[in-house]
C-alpha cells in the first residue's frame, strides 16, 4: 500500500500554509465531537422521557392509549433511521402549514441540529418504550394487586412500584439504547450537522489523510462508549435490589 502516514494533521491548531495544516483540523474534531455529544444527549432526553410514556401506555388497560402506543412503536421502530432522518428534514416541513413549515426550515435556530435530535429521539423512544414495557410486564400481577389493594391509584402504582422496579430490570438494554443513540448520531451528517463523522470526512477531503482522521473518530467513539458502559455498570450496582440475585456484568 502506498500511503504517506501523517498523524500531524490531527494536531493542527492554527492554519500554517507551509505545512500540511491548511486548516485548524484539531478544532474541527473537537467541534464535531461536541456536536456529536450534544445531538446524542438531547436525543436521549427525548428518548428516555417519551419512551417511558410510550412503554407505560403499552401496558395500560385503556385500548385507545394502548393502541396509540402500539402504532407509535410500529411506525418509529420499523422505518430505517436514515429514511426517518430524510422524512423529518425534507418532507415533514412541507406537510406543515406554510408559515410553520418555513419556520422549521429556516426560522428556528439550528434547524439541522434540532431535526436530528427530534429524529433520533423519537426513533430511540420506540426502542426505549419496548424495554420499559418488557420491564413492567416482567413484574408479577401479584405486585400490581398488592399495590392496588392498599389504595394506590393507577398513576401511583406506576410511579412508586412498577416503574422503579422495571427501570432496574432494564438497565442493561437501556445502556445499549443509549450507546445506540450516540452512535446513530453520525447519521445527522446526512442532513448537514457537522458532527464528528462529518468533520472527519471533511478532514479527509482537505488532507487526503483519511486513515488518520477516521482513526481519531473511531477512538473517540470507543472511548465515550467505554465510559458510558463503565458508568452504567456502577449505576446498576448502586440500584441493585438487596437480596435479589443479580449476577451483573463482570
Amino acid at each position: 500500500m502506498n500511503y504517506n502516514w501523517d498523524w500531524s494533521v490531527l494536531f493542527c491548531f492554527v492554519e500554517d500554509p507551509v505545512s500540511s495544516c491548511t486548516q485548524p483540523f484539531f478544532y474541527w474534531i473537537v467541534s464535531g465531537f461536541g456536536w456529536t455529544i450534544s445531538v446524542a444527549a438531547a436525543a436521549w432526553v427525548i428518548a428516555f422521557s417519551l419512551g417511558s410514556v410510550i412503554g407505560v401506555l403499552r401496558t395500560v388497560e385503556n385500548p385507545y392509549l394502548r393502541g396509540f402506543a402500539t402504532v407509535y412503536v410500529t411506525i418509529f421502530r420499523n422505518i430505517p433511521l436514515l429514511v426517518q432522518m430524510f422524512l423529518w428534514f425534507f418532507v415533514f416541513p412541507e406537510l406543515l402549514p406554510d408559515e410553520a413549515g418555513k419556520w422549521v426550515k429556516r426560522g428556528m435556530p439550528l434547524p439541522e441540529f434540532w431535526t436530528a435530535v427530534v429524529c433520533l429521539g423519537t426513533y430511540t423512544a420506540s426502542r426505549v418504550g419496548e424495554q420499559v414495557r418488557a420491564g413492567i410486564e416482567a413484574i408479577t400481577q401479584g405486585q400490581r394487586y398488592a399495590a392496588m389493594a392498599m389504595g394506590l391509584r393507577p398513576v401511583q402504582v406506576y410511579r412508586y412500584i412498577l416503574l422503579p422496579v422495571s427501570y432496574r430490570i432494564i438497565i442493561p438494554p437501556l445502556t445499549s439504547d443509549f450507546l445506540g443513540v450516540f452512535k446513530n448520531s453520525s447519521l445527522a451528517l446526512t442532513i448537514g450537522v457537522l458532527e464528528l463523522t462529518a468533520q472527519t470526512r471533511q478532514i479527509e477531503e482537505y488532507t487526503f489523510q483519511g486513515f488518520e482522521a477516521f482513526t481519531a473518530a473511531t477512538l473517540l467513539y470507543i472511548v465515550v462508549t467505554a465510559i458510558v458502559m463503565a458508568v452504567m455498570r456502577v449505576v446498576e450496582g448502586r440500584v441493585v435490589i438487596p437480596g435479589m440475585i443479580s449476577l451483573g456484568a463482570k
Binding site: T140, G142, Q143, Y145, A146, A147, A149, M150, Y160, I161, P164, V165, R168, I241, G243, M244
Partner: peptide
Amino acid sequence: IGMVFQNFELFPH
C-alpha cells in the same frame, strides 16, 4: 381493606 397475599407481595425495591 387490608389484603394479604399468598406470595407476600412486598415491594422488593
